[in-house]
Design a protein around this nucleic acid. Structure first.
Lengths: 323, 323
DNA sequence: TTGTAAGCGTTATCAG
DNA sequence: CTGATAACGCTTACAA
């Protein structure tokens, strides 16, 4: 493997000059520059990035911690990161943690070991304070809102409020909600919005621990068993909404006549089912998180709120009058 | 930042001994080992991986080239890679190319520059030969079948055959197919299967360039306009099938009564729509590709075929007799 | 404009 | 068992 010393020898210059040519520095005589380029060509030289990284003390790589790479909205964030990284000729390393704390620790260790210059944490289960103790090794940006951390986030309180308001505008008073992981920051904000804005809020109508299509079907089963049923349900993901809708239709119920349903994410699934949903620009989250983690003044805490949008579909309508 | 020299000084041993302790080598006296560990603790030492990489001449990182990180089946492959990489304490760098050749070249260059030890190419548009010229820099594994390359692949010919046979079993003779990118290896294999196994094969019933839900809706529009319509369509992705099914239902047609549809991938979408589909274990592709690219004898060409499975759903049924 | 030489933080050879 | 010392391949003062 040819290195810059070989080049220097071949071109009859010093390694410094070679390095300068390689990095497009000024102050290199035309002929020498030409000579170096010729040597590069002749010897088929290719720069060894690892050596560059060691020398400059940076890897030009950022790390991404997320629970699942193949969940639609995490993948969408990843795609935003990929886009930005490519544009700025950065690389990114991805770690799938499955929310396992020991796996999350591996990611933090990688930052400490200088494998990456900074970290984007899409979602985590480790206590925030534990994570922040690694900030000494490099900037850390979250995609969920916490106090005193840099974050690019969705205001789930106001996003949920949007959905609840829409249902109330349609005349619904008996409204239920589906939540994801029980104690996540997001779920807490959503629950808060529910209790703040829905007068008839009832814990019987809070369906917790719903994440997948199957969970949606289970919500349907529970709804069917209830004596007092909500006339509308606001979910925390299009997947759950889809499971709910399709299971009820399979049972002969009509959506939205028998139950209004609003999804969350604005995914393909929502589009396919002409779902009313709250759309989130996940790719923008990724892009902003990337730009935050690579700023010069990355040490400064910065919080960027990403707006959500209600998309009207055919799964939520005026409350069905009781005969 | 404390380094092994500091440790050596603190523990009163040589850097070699420190390195040995760090790497759990035998032949280190108990007390010295203890002394080094104490020094590590005291100075809060953390190993610099970049230096390790430069020294051992490997990065313990593999690169992944794929067109879109947020397309369901690419994401599923990625998740398989993520799983295997984590288990073997490897890292992986992801590049999203959007099928842009210049972007694909960037990835190859990264291999040459030793940023990664090997490459997994999920899908590409660059000529295979161009890619293979980079094999001198490290092992390259494809997720599509080509001659003389290591690959983990789906036999699209036989997978499509499965779908076509199923439709014929149901009595269909007028069968159409949807294909993705026109000249991709996969499309060619699928077209071949179509012509080999369907007697009434007709180019009017080959819908090309279909990749998204919207494309599926366009297939529906075209199908509606045709005088001679196929009674069944085998698609190349659940997304396309979903667009087709939902658009036709919207227009008042019944699936499968008016048209039998078979999807491809075995995605969430298929599940939601109770679709008949051909399921592919994409995560397994990722895992196998990873194990191939990290083997000792990675230079040897190895090809691993991944099996596909027909999943019966409610979107394909016996051909509707003409009255 | 150019070059010498000292890092960057490890690993690994080889002699003791 | 242990330790000098030479790599690994590049960047960057500093001096000329």
């Amino acid at each position: 493997m040819t290195n810059i010393r070989d080049l220097a020898h071949e071109a009859n210059v010093s390694v410094t000059t070679v390095s300068r040519v390689l990095n497009d520095h000024p102050y290199v005589a035309k002929e020498k520059r030409r000579a170096v380029k010729a040597a590069i060509e002749k010897l088929g030289y290719i720069r060894n990035q690892t050596a560059v990284h060691l020398s400059i003390g940076q890897t030009k790589t950022i790390g991404v911690m997320l629970p699942f790479v193949d969940h639609p909205y995490h993948a969408a964030i990843l795609q935003g990161i990929a886009k930005s990284a490519f544009e700025k000729t950065y690389r990114f390393l991805t770690w799938q943690t499955n929310y396992v704390e020991e796996h999350e620790r591996t990611v933090l260790r990688a930052l400490a070991q200088r494998e990456v210059d900074g970290l984007i944490i899409v979602s985590h289960s480790l206590p925030t304070a534990d994570i922040l103790s690694y900030e000494q090794y490099g900037p850390i940006v979250f995609c969920e809102l916490h106090e005193a951390v840099s974050a690019v986030y969705i205001n789930h309180y106001s996003a949920f409020r949007k959905g609840l308001m829409e249902l109330q505008r349609l005349g619904h008073t008996n409204i239920g909600i589906c939540l994801g992981r029980s104690d996540s920051t997001n779920s807490l904000a959503r629950k808060q919005a529910y209790h703040d804005f829905v007068e008839q809020a009832s814990n019987d109508w809070v369906y917790e621990q719903t994440l997948t299509i199957e969970d949606g079907a289970r919500v349907a089963a529970r709804w069917l068993k209830q004596k007092q049923r909500p006339s509308a349900i606001l979910t925390a993901s299009d997947h759950v909404a889809a499971g709910l809708i399709l299971e009820l239709r399979k049972q002969g119920y009509r959506i939205p006549e028998d139950l209004s349903v609003i999804g969350f994410d604005g995914s393909d699934l929502a589009e396919v089912l002409s779902m009313t949903t709250i759309s989130i620009p996940y790719d923008v989250i990724g892009q902003q998180a990337f730009s935050l983690v690579t700023r010069q003044d990355a040490a400064t805490v910065r919080q960027i709120e990403i707006p959500s949008t209600l998309i009207s579909g055919l799964t939520a309508q005026n409350v069905h009058p009781v005969h």
